[in-house]
Design a protein around this nucleic acid. Structure first.
Lengths: 273, 273
DNA sequence: TGTCGTCTTTGTTCTGGATCAAATTGAAAT
DNA sequence: ATTTCAATTTGATCCAGAACAAAGACGACA
């Protein structure tokens, strides 16, 4: 039950763009007020570092607009993008301090931030805040493992298709119509996309143009596409339709091992077919 | 075996093999008693499925002995191992029910289990239990992202070296002496190891024998090795020594981007050098 | 409008590992 | 011990995609 407006001070949060979907709105009003009091906005330009690798995390928060990338690097310069954060996503390593990946602005971004220690103290007073964080962390863990499957055993066409479908689900919702044709806006550079998919910009370019040649997508420009044949894109991704996860999945009667046995002697595949 | 009636106050947990290191012992005594009351043991043979992919998670728990593997599979039979669970590790998907990976016994295992819903109700009554789960989940998330780096941009020799070092840290502690020579027991098959590293059994075999040829390890038999030159193994892994994470890392003065620039024009590498 | 610098595309070559194949080891069952 | 069957090793070939190279495309700025 929402209290009448004149009974409490209006916080900036009441008009926040990500109010309806972010973690901070899924807790009770008292806690929301405390969070509002603690919050402050920060803005970063494309490419700026929000939190460096192995730096003590001084603040955490929510993405209000733009895209953050989480990335790890090896001494010799190789990099791996380990996650993208879109509007209303929570960022920052709580409980433990040291983040073992860098958080950088993949576009111009606005962030709603909380001083980390203060935020953690709040979770102690309000278990429901920690619970929301927990649900969030579990989702991220599922997503990370899903990406391990992609990096560990999928081909480039499968990876690119999966990535495009992921953008459909997670990208700016006002950017796509839910009709037959879906528009996709790439919020990141080819280099970032390549790093996320464990490949190179050149390979991505080739796959995307091959998709276009086959009429699966239409290339408007280097970062805007239109999905012409979603069914085929899903098929190319080598997954069940990622956007449709039934609440209760049908139980498969065959174990993974039996399925593996059934797949013995599969012909080689180019990924396109 | 059933405890004698007059010993009921003493829980089986008091003599549990993983008592000192597992999540359930890091909470207060009241909660420990409730947990003990809820717990029951289950045993599985090598290869048996504990929880199938996309099956509703009916129970969660702790590994008492043996190794569990978490793995995902694609329709055509390709598989990716997304994690290994050793003694005292927590397993099972809480809050959400559907696990999107299978949990299988990678060896004979003994598990200490809690009915999932009952366990979740306990976290509502005891926030500190949820907090311990949270810390655990965050660690797993860090580990998953670390593995994404490995799968996304490391060579086979690097992956195998990283894996062996990981076993040093997480494998059975009584299996290795902390002297100059370290013994490693592979608790899983080549197939599992290959799946974890995103490669094939053949490639693993070649890398391991090349390591042996170079005097980095000694092969006692197919699943028992001895590390003869840990420094070189660490170097081969392409990482900082994974087993020594300083509480506060030295802050790197160079950003990943600068380092990338510095690494331009690197010569190709076989991984061995 | 041109010029610079960056990002992307397209073309070519090369190689790390996958795949295919066969031999070897090893453990369980008879 | 001997047969079976599976797991591992070793050998030979092949190819998806990396690396290298060079040519557009595009935006920023004067």
């Amino acid at each position: 039950m929402e209290p009448l407006p004149f009974l409490r001070a209006l916080t900036p949060c009441d008009r926040c763009a990500v109010r309806k979907t972010s973690l901070c709105s899924r807790v009770n009003v008292d806690l929301q007020r405390d969070l509002a009091r603690l919050s402050h906005h920060r803005t970063y330009r494309l490419g700026e570092t929000v939190l460096a690798e192995m730096e003590a995390t001084s603040f955490v928060g929510i993405v209000v607009s733009g895209v953050l990338r989480m990335q790890k690097s090896l001494e010799d310069g190789r990099q791996q993008l380990v996650g993208l954060l879109f509007r209303s996503d929570f960022f920052g390593r709580v409980f433990g301090g040291l983040s073992d990946y860098a958080i950088e602005a993949a576009s111009d971004v606005i962030l709603c931030c909380y001083e980390r220690r203060a935020f953690e103290r709040l979770t102690e007073r309000f278990p429901e805040l920690e619970h929301q964080l927990m649900l969030n962390t579990l989702d991220e863990l599922d997503a990370a493992r899903d990406w391990m499957l992609l990096l560990g055993c999928q081909t480039m066409p499968e990876r690119v298709a999966s990535f495009l479908l992921m953008l459909c689900r997670r990208g700016e919702p006002d950017e796509w119509v839910s009709g037959a044709n879906l528009s996709i806006h790439l919020p990141i550079s080819r280099r970032d996309m390549a790093s996320y998919l464990g490949t190179t910009g050149e390979s991505i370019s080739r796959v995307i143009h091959e998709m276009s040649r086959r009429g699966i997508i239409k290339i408007r420009n280097a970062q805007d596409f239109e999905i012409l044949n979603k069914r085929q894109l899903v098929r190319m991704s080598g997954r069940d339709d990622l956007s449709i996860r039934p609440a209760i999945a049908a139980q498969s009667s065959r174990s993974p091992y039996e399925r593996l046995a059934a797949a013995n002697g599969l012909p080689r595949s180019t990924g396109f077919h």
